[in-house]
Amino acid sequence: MGYGIRLLVRGDYACYTRPEFKAERVSYDVITPSAARGVLEAILWKPAIRWVVDKISVLNPIVFDSIRRNELGSKIPPNNVTAAMRGGKDLHQYINDDRQQRATLLLTDVAYILEAHFEINKEKAGETDTPEKFYNMFLRRARQGQCFHTPYLGCREFAAHFKLIEEEGEPESYYKDEAEIDLGWMLWDIEYKAEVNKKKTEFSFTPKFFRAYMRHGVIEVPKEVNI
C-alpha cells in the first residue's frame, strides 16, 4: 500500500449517472469510486502510479433536484476526425439540427472526504520514481490548489473544489448517527482491456459493480470486485 491522503471535495451540483437509465440522466446517491479517482487524477496523474479509493465520507445530506438541459444528440465519429486531420473532410456539428432536451436528476450542495492511496506501477515507473516523490508532489499540488484540469463531480460542468486535510479533526457527517444505509448497487470502475487480433487492436470495456453500504456516513470501498 502506498502513502495515504485525505481530501475534502465540495460542489454546488453533482451528477454520477446511473448506467441503467438511457434517455434521462439520473444520479447515484453519492460519488462513485471511479468519479472519486477522477478527482485525484485531476490533481496528480502519472503513468507510474495508480490511485485506489479506500473510503468515502458523505458530509452533507443527500438532496436531489431536477433540471432540463439542451444537449447534442450524437457524437462526431472517430473516422470523421481522422479524415479531417488528413484534410479530406469538413468536421462540424450543427447544434440546431441535433439539439435534444433531456431531464437530469442531480445532487445539490455535495461534500465528501476521500481517503485514498496510490500504488506504484512497476512496469512504467522509472529509477527515480519513488512513493515519497509522488506523495510529496501530491501534497504540494493539493495545498496550492493546483491541478492538470479542473476536477468535476460526474459531469464536466459541475466543478469540484478541493482541500487537503492534514489536521486530526474533520467535518462530521450528517449521517454519523445512522448505523447503516443500503445505497444499492453502485458502479465501482470500468475494466479496460486491449487485445491484438489479426494485427488490429480491439478494446473492451467491462463495468464492475459493488453493493454500497453507508455506515455512520462512511462507505468502505472494496479493493476488488468480480461483479
Rank of each mutant, 00 (worst) to 15 (best):
Y3F: 15
Y3P: 10
D12T: 11
Y13V: 01
Y13W: 01
A14S: 03
C15G: 00
T17S: 07
T17Q: 03
R18V: 10
P19S: 02
E20T: 02
F21S: 10
F21R: 02
K22V: 10
A23L: 12
E24C: 08
E24S: 14
I31K: 00
S34H: 02
V39A: 04
E41Q: 15
A42M: 05
K46W: 11
P47Q: 04
A48T: 08
A48D: 07
V53E: 00
D54C: 06
K55I: 07
I56S: 01
I62A: 07
F64I: 08
F64S: 01
R69I: 02
R69N: 05
E71L: 15
S74M: 04
K75D: 13
K75L: 10
N79C: 11
A83E: 06
A84M: 04
A84W: 07
G87V: 06
G88T: 15
K89P: 08
L91W: 06
R99V: 12
Q100L: 05
R102W: 05
A103Y: 11
T104I: 05
L105D: 11
L106Q: 00
L106M: 03
L107R: 00
A111L: 11
Y112C: 04
Y112G: 10
I113Y: 13
L114T: 01
A116Y: 15
A116D: 13
H117P: 00
I120M: 07
I120Y: 13
K124C: 06
T128R: 10
E132Y: 14
K133M: 06
Y135G: 08
N136Y: 14
M137Q: 15
F138S: 02
F138Q: 04
L139S: 08
L139V: 07
R140F: 12
Q146D: 12
Q146W: 11
F148W: 15
P151A: 06
L153G: 02
G154P: 02
C155E: 04
C155G: 09
E157W: 01
A159K: 04
A160P: 01
A160V: 04
F162E: 09
E166Y: 15
E168I: 15
G169F: 15
E172F: 08
E172S: 03
S173K: 01
Y174W: 05
D177S: 11
E178F: 04
A179W: 11
E180G: 04
I181E: 09
D182C: 10
M186K: 09
M186E: 15
L187G: 03
L187V: 04
D189Q: 09
D189M: 03
Y192K: 03
Y192D: 11
A194V: 14
K200I: 15
K200C: 11
T201E: 08
T201W: 08
E202M: 11
K208S: 10
K208C: 06
K208Q: 13
F209S: 09
R211F: 03
Y213Q: 14
Y213A: 10
M214Y: 05
M214T: 13
R215I: 15
H216L: 14
H216K: 14
G217S: 08
K223F: 09
K223G: 14
V225Y: 00
N226F: 06
